[in-house]
């Protein structure tokens, strides 16, 4: 960890902008493009950072008389002030898109996007503490923590080290006092969490699969895709063709909360009822993904709670399950 006197996010953003790199920073709705470092805010955007690597619509091929390859998106971009939960989600998405079969579209965007995360304070819905911490550097290229006018900077990946090369003269090693300050701040933020879940809930979930609680929880659920679309780790997509003789094949986000998601062409639907689909969301994140990838696919950003139209609350649901 190194120390920078001043706000490193602003400095690095200005420098990257000067180099012709497109820079994005948090705003109310999403991580949006900025053209001046004063536009960097600290809010938690409603949309997660996943759309930079895995956009809602991505053209895969063009077709007509012959199949045309679509050039991969290699535009150099940087997202600054990424929330640690969002950055951590990228690490999880990497496991999906880059392990085993490698997704070239994702790979190209991943290689050309610099993620600069910044430590944050939890709001009423956050529970990232249960899986990691708001000071986690996982998934980021550079991790920044701004405390009392100075910035603690750490290059996490090779890409990050490359960017930091330009700042070598401005960065110095922290004093013991400063390290102490960092630890204290971490401790203080840790105490601010209002919500927590138990991540080791897998055995309990296996028992509760046929429980009646799922029907009860699902009563209020409206069956929309808000929770999955806003989730930084949800990665399901659907492939569609647009155009009859000539057109494009694209992929678009899909959600396990829609009945069409599991509809088979025999017209059988294994998850026919709303409560089955709702149950699937929790089982996928907390059981199936643990079994197949070894990670809980929830980072605790709280977006699915705050934006749910019906007040379905993942924290309450998991508490109910562990009871």
């Amino acid at each position: 960890m190194l120390v920078y006197e001043g706000d490193f996010l602003k400095t690095v953003a200005s420098k990257l902008m000067k180099e012709g790199c497109r820079v994005y920073a948090p705003s109310e709705i999403a991580y949006t493009e900025i053209n001046h470092d004063s536009q960097i805010s600290d809010v938690k955007p409603k949309k997660s950072v996943k759309e930079f690597l895995f956009p809602q619509n991505e053209v895969l091929i063009g077709y007509g008389d012959w199949i045309e390859k679509v050039p991969l998106n290699r535009e150099r971009r940087a997202v600054v002030g990424v929330k640690p939960c969002d950055a951590r989600a990228i690490k999880l998405l990497d496991r999906i898109f880059l392990e085993g079969f490698e997704d070239p579209y994702y790979r190209a965007r991943r290689e050309n996007t610099i993620i600069i995360s910044s430590s944050c304070e939890p709001d009423a819905y956050c529970f990232c503490e249960s899986f990691s911490s708001p000071f986690s550097e996982e998934g980021a290229d550079i991790f920044v923590s701004r405390i009392d006018g100075i910035s603690f900077v750490k290059a996490v990946s090779e890409k990050g080290k490359e960017v930091l090369k330009g700042f070598e003269s401005d960065l110095r090693n922290p004093t013991d006092q400063e390290i102490e300050k960092f630890r204290n701040e971490e401790e203080r933020v840790r105490g601010l969490f209002r919500r927590s879940v138990e991540a080791e809930i897998q055995e309990k979930m296996k028992e509760k699969f046929d429980s009646e609680i799922w029907k009860e929880i699902a009563i209020g659920c409206v069956g929309c895709g808000t929770c999955t679309f806003l989730c930084p780790t949800c990665f399901c997509f659907d492939m569609l063709d647009e155009g009859e003789k000539k057109g494009i094949r694209y992929r678009a986000w899909d959600s396990c909360q829609f009945p069409l998601y599991t509809l088979e062409s025999s017209s059988h639907n294994p998850r026919r009822e709303k409560w089955q689909r709702l149950r699937n969301r929790f089982y996928d994140k907390f059981l199936y993904m643990v079994e197949s990838k070894g990670n809980v696919f929830c980072v605790g950003c709280g977006r699915c709670i705050s934006e749910c139209p019906a007040g379905v609350d993942i924290v309450e649901v998991l508490q109910e399950v562990s009871r």
């Binding site: 809602q56 409206v222 929309c224 895709g225 999955t228 569609l240 009945p259 139209p309 019906a310």
Partner: peptide
């Protein structure tokens, strides 16, 4: 708009079992 269809799903008057925007015929 992210087309999560929350507006449709939350609406008490939207009760069709098959919606126009679902890309395959149910």
């Amino acid at each position: 708009c992210i087309r999560c269809y929350a507006c449709r799903s939350a609406c008490p008057m939207c009760y069709c079992t098959e919606c126009l925007v679902d890309p395959v015929n149910l």
